[in-house]
Nucleic acid binder design. Structure first.
Length: 267
DNA sequence: ATGTCGCGTGAAACGCGA
């Protein structure tokens, strides 16, 4: 089972690239983030023509997540369980039958910038504390999923650079919400539960990125960040056969600022 | 390079989020 994740930064604008990726990579499940469209406006017909079903938690203008799949999704969960969230950032479902069952989540973790302090009190900003609270609930939910002892993949745009090796210019990004120690410690909490960073399991080399800012020629200079991740439960890690970043879509005209990442599970 | 996108508003250029 091939599972991919991609922050498309508007599914309507990126539809031609999305179609090309599905035809080229042929994932069984594709997790999308930043679809930026309501469920009723999702381009379902074009995707159905390729044999893909759509489940989505949509929102106007911002956020929005989706699960595209060849087989129907089961036991769909909309929103991060136990977290009252006005923003469309989490969708989870099961795919595959019997021994081949895999639970897959498409997550869009808050950016969290600016970190703050944003007033005279010296407190961290509301955006950053929202990010940290969101991540803490994700840790709690991952712990709940682990109790089921089934393979699962937490996929998505984490807005986290796990280490300085995932950043083109660590000093410049040190105080950014994507690199702050509070952010990294919550990502490590997921790892410490026993989850596997699928990309790192196959690729120890530094400076491999999934995101390049639109500004300042970052793509042409390969100055990016590794912020899109596939975290595998132990049962999924036992089955993972490959994990790659597909840089192709980022190099196209009118590209998303993120590029897809995928893994293959032997099920 | 203070450098770019996508979206909503509302009918062009701006604010927001990233």
């Amino acid at each position: 089972m091939k599972i991919a994740s991609w922050n498309v930064n508007s599914v309507k604008v990126r539809l031609p690239h999305l179609v090309a990726f599905l035809e080229d990579a042929k994932p069984d499940v594709l997790c999308l983030q930043e679809t930026k469209c309501l469920a009723d406006e999702f381009p379902r017909l074009e995707l159905a023509a390729l044999g893909y079903r759509v489940e989505t938690l949509g929102q106007r203008a911002y956020n929005g997540v989706a699960l595209l799949s060849r087989e129907p999704a089961r036991d769909i969960v909309c929103g991060l369980p136990g977290f009252a969230d006005e923003q469309a950032r989490y969708l989870e479902a099961s795919f595959g039958a019997a021994a081949g069952e895999v639970r897959v989540a498409s997550a869009y973790i808050p950016n969290g910038n600016p970190v703050g302090p944003d007033n005279s009190t010296g407190d961290l900003s509301d955006k950053f504390t929202y990010k940290l609270a969101w991540m803490e609930r994700l840790v709690g939910h991952a712990r709940e999923l682990l109790r089921r002892e089934i393979p699962f993949v937490l996929a998505g745009d984490y807005n986290v650079c796990p280490t300085d090796e995932d950043v083109y210019d660590p000093p410049a990004w040190r105080d950014d919400a994507l690199c702050r120690i509070e952010t990294r410690s919550r990502f490590r909490a997921l790892i410490h539960l026993g989850l596997t960073d699928a990309y790192r399991a196959f690729h120890p080399e530094p400076h491999r990125y999934t995101f390049w800012d639109y500004q300042a020629g970052r793509w042409n200079r390969d100055e990016g960040l590794r912020i899109d991740h596939l975290l595998l439960s132990p049962q999924a890690a036992d089955r993972v056969a490959a994990c790659e970043i597909d840089k192709g879509p980022r190099g196209k005209e009118r590209a998303s600022d993120h590029t897809p990442i995928w893994c293959e599970l032997a099920v």
